[in-house]
């Protein structure tokens, strides 16, 4: 991975400054009529954006809008669909099961997202240093993300089966009985949360590692010379410079948490009595078990609105902290 010498000036000629206050506008490099430069750059940008936008537009956005349209009808999975206006949305606002699912999902997100991000960051910091068997540890921690979640949830379900599970028996032997475990309404949600966190820490860790390694060495060395000690070094130097990555991880973590489905589907089926039913499970139930596509679409778009609000909030929060080199 060598830098093309002709296009880049020598290292000694470059100065790197880290700006901690907002992004700077891209400087104009030639003194010509501004508008023609701008137009040319817009065209170039459009060209770069086009292929991906086309695919996303046709195969993702369009179906999403189709679902939006369906949410205003009484569509069942097939057959005629009559326009019902906002009736589906009115229904979901009055639907206890919807609010229960929203509550469960929010609870799940509020617990798992920050925890998994924090744990992942800790692990990334640990594994960014010269720890023995660093690569092995990284691989192990990333393992949960490598398999299909629904398959590995089978393993979790067996391990923690209150009556015949291996882990349940071990815990009982060391004096930490799990009682009725995942069938206990109080423990079902913590159990699926645990699986969710377990699943994602490797994923977020890898992203943090990528971010950590993008911090220019000069800055780290400068801090070391200044005598910044361990945690202070992290808080004043690493953490702010990691802001781009952190923003990304936090936004993604929230979006993923709100879409939790696989482990609940396999391990608890949304039970006991809906205590682990997330929004996506409810959408699946209304859409594919009750065949009410219109209503399921409405619930889905309610989910999108909630997640979008949260994401925009997060993006706005981090906008002021964006790092530009």
């Amino acid at each position: 991975m060598s830098a093309p010498q002709r296009l880049l000036p020598r290292r000694s000629e470059r100065t790197i400054t880290a700006t901690l206050a907002g992004p700077r506008p891209v400087p104009r490099v030639r003194v010509l009529r501004r508008s023609s430069i701008q137009r040319r750059r817009t065209r170039t940008a459009a060209a770069f954006l086009a292929p991906a936008s086309l695919v996303l537009g046709v195969f993702v956005l369009y179906p999403m809008l189709d679902a939006l349209r369906a949410s205003f009808t009484d569509a069942r999975i097939i057959g005629p669909a009559d326009w019902v206006g906002l009736a589906n949305y009115a229904e979901l606002l009055a639907d206890d099961r919807f609010w229960n699912a929203l509550w469960n999902t929010a609870l799940y997100a509020v617990v798992t997202a920050p925890l998994s991000v924090a744990i992942a960051l800790g692990l990334a910091l640990m594994l960014n240093r010269a720890v023995p068997a660093r690569l092995l540890f990284r691989a192990i921690i990333f393992f949960p993300f490598v398999t299909s979640l629904s398959l590995v949830s089978i393993a979790w379900a067996f391990l923690f089966d209150p009556q015949v599970g291996t882990a349940a028996a071990w815990l009982s032997q060391v004096g930490l009985p799990i009682g009725n475990g995942i069938n206990d309404p109080q423990w079902a949600m913590p159990a699926v949360m645990l699986v969710g966190i377990w699943r994602n820490i490797g994923f977020f860790m890898v992203m943090f590692l990528a971010g950590l390694q993008s911090i220019p060495r000069e800055l780290k060395e400068a801090a070391a010379v200044d005598g910044a000690a361990g945690f202070r070094h992290f808080r004043t130097m690493t953490w702010p410079l990691l802001a781009n990555t952190t923003m990304f991880v936090v936004v993604i973590a929230a979006i993923f948490a709100f879409q939790a489905f696989d482990q609940m589907y396999v391990m608890t089926g949304g039970g006991p009595f809906f205590s682990t039913e997330t929004l996506v499970m409810y959408i699946y139930d209304t859409g594919f078990e009750q065949y009410r596509t219109g209503y399921a679409s409405a619930v889905s778009w309610a989910l999108v609105l909630v997640v979008l609000t949260i994401s925009i909030g997060q993006l706005w929060y981090f906008r002021k902290r964006a790092v530009q080199y």
């Binding site: 999403m64 189709d66 879409q259 489905f261 996506v280 399921a296 679409s297 889905s300 989910l303 999108v304």
Partner: peptide, 10 residues
């Protein structure tokens, strides 16, 4: 936003 809608719906 394209990340936010569950695949079950699309």
């Amino acid at each position: 936003v394209t990340l936010m809608l569950p695949i079950q719906v699309t």
